[in-house]
């Protein structure tokens, strides 16, 4: 079964535990500036939104890469960056329509979400269930259920 990150912004409190978990998993330090997942604070509206790579099936980043440094992980379906192949040209960061591939100036390579090899640390760390790792075909199920409940006539 292919799994995917399910993001439910309405549950997010903006605590950044996901960013710390991500940076710790990937860089060994607590450092939101190196996180592959980002939480955005729409302050005037009182809304928060976690956002990261959704692992497109036809991945723009993968097709754009001139050195084939972005490959599909057969176990997770994630588009992984091969760090020793990446030349840091950043073409993938232009190709990605969502901005979720980013350049890391410290390493000179790009970084993006790789689903932590199938056990995403952000989902484990999220205290409110705003980030979960579920069957890729079911990412809309919770919302469908919530709306479905409204279709039942009230007694």
């Amino acid at each position: 079964m292919l799994k995917a990150l399910q993001l439910e912004p309405e549950k997010c409190t903006g605590c950044l535990q996901c960013e710390m978990a991500c940076s710790y998993e990937n860089e060994g330090v607590f450092n939101p500036s190196k996180s592959r997942i980002k939480v955005f604070n729409f302050h005037d509206e009182g809304r928060f939104a976690p956002y990261t790579c959704s692992q497109c099936s036809e991945a723009w980043c993968l097709h754009a890469c001139p050195v084939e440094a972005i490959v599909i992980n057969p176990m997770t379906g994630a588009k992984d960056v091969l760090e020793d192949v990446c030349v840091g040209c950043k073409v993938c960061t232009i190709a990605c329509p969502f901005g979720t591939v980013n350049y890391n100036a410290d390493s000179g390579k790009v970084i993006k979400c790789d689903l932590c090899g199938g056990d995403p640390a952000c989902a484990t760390a999220c205290p409110t269930g705003a980030i979960t790792y579920v069957d890729a075909e079911h990412t809309g199920l919770a919302r469908m259920k919530a709306h479905a409940s409204q279709t039942i006539p009230k007694n």
């Binding site: 409190t13 903006g14 009182g46 205290p127």
Partner: peptide, 13 residues
């Protein structure tokens, strides 16, 4: 009340 909000790293919010 629009929403609850967390400070950095807070799982209470």
């Amino acid at each position: 009340l629009v929403t609850n909000a967390a400070c950095f790293g807070c799982t209470i919010a």
